[in-house]
Design a protein around this nucleic acid. Structure first.
Lengths: 231, 231
DNA sequence: TTGGAAGCTGAACGTTTGTATGGGAGGAGG
DNA sequence: CCTCCTCCCATACAAACGTTCAGCTTCCAA
């Protein structure tokens, strides 16, 4: 279905519909996007949408499959295409809508998006358990799986909250300028130690105590937003 | 509209409808939730929903206002209610649906949710520029605003991606067990230094060079997912 | 007791949705 | 020429949606 290179026949009506659906699903959600809206965005009739993709569910699954395939294909090409000028621009043109789609699909509940998330966690965990490149330290944790999950969630969260981050930062985080500013900020957060070693040790001790105490006898998950502002 | 304590009249049909709407909006999105579904969940007729809250838009705005008010009220009470036994349980019962609602509203695009996000960034930024409590270091960054935005986005992202984090971690992150595991993992990530000082310095230099070079002449924002797995 | 407001219901209306259907334009092969 | 096939469009229709409306209780004040 997909070529290894850039799909040459990407001007077909079917591809245009798929792209329009990707965008509409990403912007209005799986329920908010309509057949007629997609058809109009693609410049075709409503009937053609269902001629190519039978039902809305099938159109959505086609988008899922395309997104899944694109993610895998681009991550495979990324390895040896990193030196090719124009590859990044081409990759971004295809990649960006897919990432926006997947970000929305994660919230709206799509099996494909969930799988991408799980795969990312697996990949990250494997990356950390395998021999690491020089300069990269092994994560100091007893729960590499959780560590990887948190890392992936942070990364994906930036995409899901893209709109709000862009507004707050004053620059679209999908443009080079905004992406750089966000990257710098994230880098600072990761390279920084907000808590002194003593306070960090106390926090860890408190978590252990909390755990051994049967989670405080009454349900206390309400304050589950960690490291937000104060201790 | 809201008492300072726990709303005693929370058994009224209006409150039941509001709670049901909160839940439905959180689960199915603003477009996916229906009047009839909300009415059924609240155990009332469709007409009553319309009687109390005129239109769907108004119902949504009522949920927004309630969520906004709850967030502010709870954060105010949190200061002196932290010692009160049962307060956390009560707070969680009210707080949790609101947080789930806001997490969904952030993606579906609600002014109130956006405001909560902005306020959180402001609060965090102010927290960092004001004198810090002992044990908390000032963030080592030249962009405190971006730093605060990244921190808030990370926190909120955990709530938005709650479903996937729970699946991957094997425990609902809204229960004490799952929340603790996630908190530990996040704590490890924040307290850890994945990159050696040399590599971190190189990464910073690369970002500066990238910036001064006009963002690489061609659009390169596609790889905007920072610190994901490799360098 | 009477009256009216408030809480609540069920049935209806018009619109929008996803989907089904019939048919037309244009080339390929016989 | 005809025929088939693919691509494509306009319309039709049932279901679900938000919304409207007339009427039923319940309760409290006059």
């Amino acid at each position: 279905m997909t070529e290894t290179g850039p799909p040459a026949e990407d001007l077909t009506a079917r591809a245009r519909i798929r792209d329009a659906a990707l965008e509409m699903f990403a912007e209005h959600g799986m329920k908010g996007a309509t057949f007629r809206g997609i058809a109009e965005a693609a410049g075709v009739s409503v009937g053609l949408v269902q001629h190519h993709f039978g039902s809305k569910q099938e159109l959505r699954e086609a988008c899922d499959a395309y997104a899944l395939d694109t993610i895998h294909r681009l991550s495979a090409e990324k390895i040896d295409g990193i030196g090719d000028p124009g590859f990044l621009a081409r990759a971004m043109r295809i990649d960006l809508p897919v990432r926006r789609y997947l970000a929305r699909a994660l919230v709206d509940g799509s099996p494909a998006a969930a799988r991408v998330f799980d795969d990312l966690v697996d990949t990250t965990e494997t990356y950390f358990t395998a021999p690491l490149p020089p300069g990269v330290n092994a994560p100091a944790t007893t729960d590499v799986h959780g560590y990887a999950a948190a890392l992936v969630a942070i990364t994906i969260g930036m995409e899901v909250l893209h709109e709000h981050l862009s507004r707050v930062l004053g620059a679209d985080t999908f443009t080079p300028e905004g992406a750089l500013r966000l990257r710098r900020a994230l880098f600072d957060v990761f390279d920084d130690r907000l808590l002194s070693p003593e306070l960090a040790a106390r926090a860890r001790a408190a978590m252990r105590e909390y755990e051994s105490g049967g989670f405080g006898r009454t349900a206390r998950a309400g304050d589950g937003a960690p490291t937000e502002e104060g201790p």
